[in-house]
């Protein structure tokens, strides 16, 4: 935590103990209806100090203990290729909807936001709802089709972001973002972000692959499925960039994690 007047003030905001106790009682009562679960005993000081941590510890223990029934089955295909847990399955070329570069020329930084479309089909008996979650992306739009039969085809527009000011990204990736931008600027005759950039020696395929490798390593799409018997199940899709050719065409694969 950065120490300043704001964070010191926030640090002094605490949920009343009665609120914490009521929340824990709700969790206990809910779990008793399903199954008797031995909860970890928590000291009063720990309860008052960090409400979110307490609820996470208690509730996640409870949720994991519910998994004794057989898990409903469903399949996921991405861009018409069925995904498995065994290995990555090629799912074709990245269907890029658009890319936006937002430069901060004063600091030589920029943010790259790229949007692509993925067609995800979920097949299984008795499906009533499908929800998408996960991390490493923003779900920009979704169009559903064919959900009346209990299966669903979802056309997702997904946004992934690389920000060259983000110190969490390796410097090589951040540099690749700046170089790709200036390569495009050179072609368009636009001002460069980096005055010394030389498009003649630039290898687009290598730099683009570096960016996509990083973005896809962080990309996890969870597919949460609800069934008409009240059960739910979830699978997680992960992706990898297979190659980027000299035209910038990106080949990708997916598998279930």
């Amino acid at each position: 935590m950065i120490n300043n007047r704001y964070t010191e003030t926030v640090e002094s905001i605490h949920a009343p103990e009665s609120t914490v106790k009521a929340a824990l009682d709700s969790i206990h009562n809910h779990e008793k209806k399903e199954k008797t679960i031995r909860m970890v005993s928590l000291r009063k000081a720990a309860i008052a100090a960090a409400l979110a941590a307490v609820i996470t510890l208690g509730a996640v223990l409870g949720i994991n203990a519910f998994g004794t029934k057989s898990t409903p089955l469903f399949n996921i295909t991405v861009n018409a290729a069925e995904t498995t847990e065994k290995k990555f399955t090629p799912i074709g070329n990245l269907d890029v909807s658009g890319a936006t570069y937002s430069p901060d020329r004063a600091n030589g930084q920029l943010c790259l936001q790229e949007e692509f479309a993925a067609v995800i089909r979920v097949d299984g008996d008795g499906i009533t709802d499908v929800a998408f979650g996960g991390e490493g992306y923003t779900l920009l739009a979704r169009k559903e089709d064919d959900v009346q039969s209990g299966n669903g085809t979802y056309y997702l527009n997904i946004g992934i972001t690389a920000n060259s000011a983000d110190s969490a990204l390796p410097e090589a990736v951040r540099q690749a973002v700046r170089d790709c931008y200036d390569y495009i600027n050179t072609k368009l005759g636009e001002p460069l972000l980096q005055p010394g950039f030389n498009a003649g020696t630039f290898d687009w395929s290598t730099s683009a692959k570096l960016i996509y490798d990083t973005l896809f390593s962080n990309l996890k799409i969870t597919v949460n499925v609800s069934f008409d018997n009240g059960q739910t199940a979830v699978k997680t899709l992960v992706f990898t960039c297979d190659s980027v050719d000299s035209n910038g065409t990106v080949s990708i694969s997916a598998k279930l994690q």
Partner: peptide
Amino acid sequence: IVQEVSLALLTKCPDDKDDIAVKHWL
């Protein structure tokens, strides 16, 4: 809100998430 989120965590949070993902979800 604390009460509502507590119950939502129990009934709606996907159970494949690690602690960091649960926090983000919260």
